[in-house]
Amino acid sequence: MEHKDVIKAIDGFVFEGKELDKEVELHILSCGKCRVYFENSKRFVSGIEKLKKVKKVFDLKKSVDSYTSRFSWIQKEIKKRWLRRIIISFLGGLIIVFSVITFLYYYNSSYISDELTMELMLMEDYVSYIYSFDEVDVGY
């Protein structure tokens, strides 16, 4: 049997689920290249079967399982996401408001302290001015 025909037969085994002839099996035993292809193909076919089984066994607990509970989880999900969005927006707003208040507070307090400093300097000037008169008086 020709090598080309064996490859074709293995192709049929992998992709069409065809059985292999004895002749093909004999060739596979004697040909290293075909043996590698056949062994890999067996693993591949078995893997595909396992994947199909996994899929069947897999149970979607929360989904549109029946017409009675058809969209209940979607509605819940929508509400949940809305709630999450509202809470996040609220918290974001709160942070912005606090930032503004804090900024204004510090800005105002620094403004007030500047004013006070000015006032104090003026008072100090005024006092030293009055004292200067006293010193003159004491001198005479």
Binding site: F15, V36, N40
Partner: peptide
């Protein structure tokens, strides 16, 4: 897809059995 898979399956490195 089959051709690609065939060339991968023929690859010696894949076989570890």
């Amino acid at each position: 897809a089959r051709e690609k898979l065939r060339s991968m399956l023929e690859n010696n490195d894949l076989y570890s059995g």
